[in-house]
Amino acid sequence: MEIGIGLPGHVTGVEGHTLAAWARRAEERKFASLIASDRLAWSTPEPLITLAAAAGATGGIRLVTSVLIAPLHTNPALFAKAAATLDRIAGPGRLHLGVAPGAREDDYRASGLDFTARGRALDLLVERVAAIWRGEQEVGPAPVTPGGPA
């Protein structure tokens, strides 16, 4: 059995050094993964940046977004670059992207995006990012994990 642990992103006022220490302790205690969640309308830190900090503080624990509201990332090339950069920082096989269209309208209101188009936006983002990671569009860096993060 593998057990992951969420980073304390929903706790108001959590600072970088606290997240890094939490990540190190989770790895020392043999948790399988560190998990960062995503909400735009809450005070939750941005998950890719949070996991980059965790990657720098740890050596091998899996890094997971649960769940990244992917349609809020409206530029697929920029999202592909950000995720590939994190993949390179973390090392092969560590980054696992859990994505979803999001179920809360307040996140879409805060972003100025159409809540009703989120499913189509997710499909498009996933298709474009996969194409970029296959080398079909010149956006770098390439992920270090073959085919891109899981």
Rank of each mutant, 00 (worst) to 15 (best):
R88N: 15
I89H: 06
G93F: 04
F79W: 14
V99L: 12
V64R: 09
L51F: 11
L51P: 06
G98L: 00
R88P: 03
T85I: 09
A77R: 13
F79M: 14
S66Q: 09
V67F: 03
A103L: 06
H73K: 12
A54Y: 04
L68C: 08
A82W: 07
L63R: 06
T85P: 10
H73Y: 14
P92I: 13
V99G: 09
T44P: 01
T74R: 13
S66W: 04
A70C: 13
A82G: 07
A55K: 02
P45R: 02
L97S: 10
P92V: 15
I61C: 07
L86F: 11
K81Y: 14
N75E: 14
P92Q: 15
T50S: 10
A82Y: 08
V64W: 03
P92G: 13
P76T: 11
A52I: 05
G93Q: 01
P47I: 00
H96M: 13
L72M: 09
L78I: 14
N75A: 15
A103P: 00
A100Y: 00
R62P: 13
I69G: 04
P47D: 02
K81L: 12
L63A: 11
R88T: 14
D87H: 11
S43M: 05
A41P: 01
G60I: 05
G60Y: 04
P47N: 02
V99R: 01
A80E: 12
K81W: 11
T74I: 13
W42D: 13
A82D: 14
A77C: 12
R94Y: 05
L72I: 10
I61V: 15
A57T: 04
P71V: 03
N75P: 09
A103S: 12
F79P: 12
I49K: 05
R104P: 00
T65N: 10
A41G: 04
A103K: 05
A90G: 08
G59Q: 13
T85Y: 09
E105Q: 15
A41Y: 08
L72C: 10
T44D: 08
G56N: 14
H73R: 15
N75V: 10
S43C: 04
A84D: 02
E105F: 03
T74S: 15
P47C: 03
A100L: 01
A57D: 04
A83Q: 09
A82L: 11
G98N: 01
L78Q: 15
A103I: 00
A83H: 09
R62Y: 12
A41T: 06
G60E: 14
V64F: 07
W42L: 09
G56S: 10
T58Q: 07
E105P: 01
G59W: 05
R94K: 06
L48R: 02
T50I: 03
A90L: 01
N75T: 11
G102M: 01
R88Q: 14
A84Y: 05
A54K: 01
I61R: 00
P92T: 15
G93L: 02
V67P: 03
R104A: 11
F79K: 10
G59F: 04
G56P: 04
L40A: 00
A41D: 07
